[in-house]
Design a protein around this nucleic acid. Structure first.
Lengths: 161, 161
DNA sequence: AAGCTTAGTTGCATTTTGCCACTCGACTCG
DNA sequence: CGAGTCGAGTGGCAAAATGCAACTAAGCTT
């Protein structure tokens, strides 16, 4: 991991990036959440080098995003299963996928999301918890929240776009 | 950028990561979408080194995520404004922010999202475009889509969790 | 017994960072 | 007029991360 310059920003985005924001880590999470949970399987599907994969899995386990579980003795095999923290990475991957689908996929999306509750294809959409309307990317701003520090409180700047 | 091993995966997530998935790049996008759009401003708020920032801004411009615009002559000043591609990064940042808020923020979220259309605080939520119900992270699976390749079509694997 | 599979580790060369000093043009203060 | 400053970077160099390939080690399989 590139040094550790993300501390002390009091920012949930920076915090999240410090744990799951590394490129390979997110690809590993894609694999795990797709159901590919064994070392060699992840290695094959991502093209990641063994040592890097070992390192990333270890730090994801250290941060409680994955759990290393013995899958079978004889032959000794392990699987990496997502914890709650790990499952909650799904929306991040979905957001990345939708960005990629929209701006890169020439021949249609390689994968489409399915909502297991209703069983149908489901373009997940962001809606406002207050007015229930769909939210467009440019209709979002932020304001300082309860956890804001001095500096952040002083900058209620919403971009003008 | 670490070599470029993300090609040839036919995956929108990998594609998106290749362009915007670098840690600093996402932090830069946070700044830009927060309204901080000038070189020094971004540098100050992220703690990124000048040469890295210059590099990241350049590649974001190269990929059409940002546009470099002269902000004023005398003194010569530039700003980096988000294009459509850039604006569409917002949901990714929101997803990261929500993950961080949920799993890391001890004293409440530093920032809260505001929906500019209705003007209220808005926890953006994912809903299913088919049944309109809110979607929990673990209720999402994927299936091969129209852009899937041979291998991907052969693996309609939905994880068991 | 030879070979394969799973899950890594180790060594080494290459690439990317981070840090800091420096440039270059245009103000701005005294 | 000269000194200092600000904005936007560039350049050099050491330290860290990455990629690659070979190797270990236990337990099958043929």
């Amino acid at each position: 991991m590139p040094y550790r310059p993300f501390d002390g920003q009091n920012c949930s985005i920076a915090g999240a990036l410090a744990i799951i924001g590394e490129r390979w880590s997110l690809l590993v999470m894609r694999e795990v959440l797709l159901g590919r949970r064994r070392f060699q399987e992840i290695k094959r599907n991502t093209g990641i080098a063994s040592n890097i994969l070992a390192d990333r899995l270890q730090t994801l386990v250290d941060h409680g995003v994955l759990e290393r579980r013995r899958y079978s003795d004889q032959p000794e095999a392990y699987e990496y299963v997502p914890t709650r923290r790990g499952l909650d990475v799904n929306p991040v991957l979905i957001a990345l996928m939708q960005w990629g689908d929209r701006h890169l996929a020439a021949n249609g999306p390689p994968r489409v999301p399915v909502h297991t509750v209703c069983g149908h294809d489901a373009e997940p959409r962001l809606v406002c918890s207050h007015c229930s309307q769909p939210i467009k990317a440019e209709e979002l701003r932020v304001r300082p929240g309860p956890g804001a520090n001095e500096a952040q409180r002083a900058e209620p700047l919403l971009p003008a776009d």
